[in-house]
C-alpha cells in the first residue's frame, strides 16, 4: 500500500537516515527530552535518575533501551536526531569523534584516522 509519508524523491543512501516528518514524529519525545538538556538543571536531573527522567518524557521502551545501552544507531532508528542527541552525548562527555567511532565500530583513534585519511 502506498504510504503518503514516504517520498518519491528520497533516495537510499547507505548508512544515512533521512530525518523527515515520519522520523520527526517517531522521535518527537526522545528529541524533546534531549532538547531539555540545553539547561544544566535538566542535565543534572537526568544524571540523578535517568529512568524517571525518560519516563517523564514518555519515551518508548525501545528508546529507553537504546539510551540504557548507549546504542546511538538504535537511538537514530527510534527517531533521534543527531543535533538533539549531541546534547545527550554532552552529558556523557562524548566528543563527535567518540560518537562517530561508536556508530562505525571504530575506536575514537581509529575514527580520527579515518577522518585524516580523507584529507
Amino acid at each position: 500500500m502506498h504510504d503518503s509519508m514516504d517520498h518519491d524523491y528520497h533516495i537510499d543512501i547507505p548508512g544515512t537516515t533521512i530525518f523527515d516528518g515520519k522520523m520527526a514524529m517517531k522521535g518527537y519525545n526522545l528529541n524533546k527530552m534531549c532538547y531539555s538538556f540545553n539547561k544544566a538543571d535538566n542535565r543534572d536531573a537526568f544524571k540523578e535518575d535517568p529512568e524517571a527522567y525518560m519516563s517523564e518524557y514518555k519515551l518508548t521502551e525501545a528508546q529507553k533501551e537504546a539510551i540504557r545501552s548507549s546504542n546511538i544507531l538504535a537511538m537514530i532508528e527510534e527517531g533521534g536526531n543527531i543535533y538533539y542527541l549531541a546534547k545527550l552525548a554532552g552529558i556523557f562527555k562524548l566528543s563527535v569523534q567518540d560518537v562517530g567511532g561508536l556508530q562505525t565500530g571504530r575506536t575514537t583513534e581509529e575514527f580520527k584516522e579515518y577522518l585524516l585519511s580523507q584529507a
Binding site: 537516515t17 556508530q103 584529507a119
Partner: peptide, 12 residues
Amino acid sequence: QLDGERAGFINR
C-alpha cells in the same frame, strides 16, 4: 556527516 554508519564521511 555526524550520524549513522556513514558518520565521518567527507567529500573533498
